[in-house]
Design a protein around this nucleic acid. Structure first.
Lengths: 288, 288
DNA sequence: ACTTAACATGAAAATCTTTCATGGATAACG
DNA sequence: CGTTATCCATGAAAGATTTTCATGTTAAGT
């Protein structure tokens, strides 16, 4: 029994016409006629009654229909399984990541993933998560690390929570206090950090109503940290970024805590390749 | 995906050898080698690791195994369904029947069955059910009508119960009585009927301990009936046979009732053709 | 080392599949 | 009603695929 022919049988049943089924399947009408005849010979009875307005199932054909559907369905499952396995042998996953993740977590993940799936190519692009969301929407990446802040058309998997912490100059009196209050922030000079963190901090100030005394706005988090060290003011950065910044810094928890939720997302309602599935699962597991 | 090739894959898994699997399946080793390579190309990964002592599944092949088994199993079911349907279009059923059934019931059954399954040939052989059981055992018939008396290696389906009745001459004083007692039987001349019924009556006398005064033993039931009519004695016959004997007879129930159970049987543990199955089911339904 | 057993491989042969060209039959249409 | 279009069947030819044949390679067993 040839499964391809069974598929043709099903299509013919659906369309009630050899000609139409053949056209839709890239065969000639003649071929399909021969093929169905072959099936009928193999089974030993007629499947269709032919007429000038098409074909319709015989009673015997009707009886066979569920069995053939079933056989086709199960062979499809096998084929599907094969393509999953194959997809893990030779895939390519395009990943969007924002800088702190790219610096602090991705290198280890990529190394381990490569060991497990040596033939899956990983293609990492780094930008802010605003941009990563665009990439996801435009199908420029297969999956991306984003914050839960504005997840829209994505399947989001939570990986970790990341606190915002204040960075304070060395030997500053405020270090004696337990947490940094809103009033303290407003009293001190504030250095607005780079683009990505900027976004989180903007949200933070907006939601708490804190109005910082902005002295500087710099283009990246490292610069902001360096300026704090020079005593030019304080700044606020996600904890994860601090891991990436070498050197020791004085951090202080915020009295009004702020947490960003970091996760990985693929486009919702879009087919996800086996390789990408495997990568996402791998990332999920590595954050457990 | 070619189901035949999947079957070959399974056989190869079972035997752990291309050569052996090819031999058992009527292919050359080379053909199987090409075929498995083809499957591997289709799936996109290796199924077997080859060695000089045979082949063994790769990890991926192992993963595919259950899916392929499943696909093959379901296509087998479809093929099986087809052969059932086909079997009902062109079968032959060899039937063993004993005379009373063959005369009183079979003609109507055969006529109706033929209308329903015009292409199934029925081949009826008539003898006593002792012989029919032999035919069943020797596979000389596909199914047979037998009594439950000595059903051994058969699948027995009960169809009807058949009483033994006494046949008494016209105007005999015993007719006034309600039932025929054991003493009455022993007082009167007894005519032993033909071979088939003989067997039932022998059992009856044995089990009840009645010792009849045997005057005659005749070769068939019709003769026994005729002799009763001539006033030569009484006899005992199954009710079903009386239907077959033309003319009116005086019957009397036995005080010690005897019932034979008539059914149809096929050999147990032997494959039963679809046509035979259909016939047995048809008979069962027509006795309901 | 030699032999055997097992799988691979390329080319040839055999078989199967598909198309082409055509025909017949009926339904729809003017 | 005849004409045309549509639909399926069919036989032969072309094209693919499958299977075999002949042979090669490699490793295991003796």
């Amino acid at each position: 029994m040839n499964i391809e022919y069974c598929r043709l049988f099903l299509k013919t049943v659906k369309l009630g016409s050899f000609t139409a089924a053949a056209d839709q399947s890239g065969y000639t009408q003649s071929a399909l006629s021969h093929i169905i005849s072959g099936l009928e010979k193999e089974f030993g009875f007629a499947l269709f009654t032919r007429s000038k307005s098409g074909v319709s199932l015989t009673q015997d054909g009707e009886r066979m229909l569920p069995f053939i559907r079933d056989a086709v369905a199960h062979s499809d499952i096998a084929l599907q399984a094969a393509s999953e396995i194959k997809g893990l042998k030779s895939g390519k996953v395009r990943i969007g990541a924002f800088s702190s993740i790219a610096i602090c977590r991705l290198p280890a993940i990529i190394r381990e993933f490569n060991a497990a799936y040596p033939n899956i190519e990983l293609d990492v692009r780094v930008d802010t998560y605003r941009v990563i969301e665009e990439w996801l929407a435009n199908d420029e990446v297969d999956c991306g690390f984003i914050s839960d802040a504005s997840l829209k058309e994505t399947d989001f998997i939570l990986l970790m929570e990341d606190r915002l912490l204040a960075l304070v100059p060395d030997e500053h009196p405020i270090l004696a206090s337990d947490k940094l209050t809103a009033e303290c922030i407003e009293k001190m000079d504030f250095i607005v950090p780079g683009e990505g963190s900027n976004y989180d901090i903007g949200r933070y100030f907006k939601s708490t109503g804190i109005k910082p005394k902005v002295r500087f706005a710099v283009s990246d988090d490292y610069a902001a940290a360096a300026m704090v060290k020079q005593g030019l003011g304080i700044t606020i950065l996600p904890e994860l970024i601090l891991e990436a910044i070498s050197g020791s810094f004085n951090t202080l928890e915020l009295e009004r805590e702020c947490i960003r939720k970091i996760g990985i997302a693929a486009r919702r309602n879009a087919p996800v390749s086996p390789a990408c599935k495997a990568f996402i699962e791998f990332v999920r597991a590595s954050f457990e």
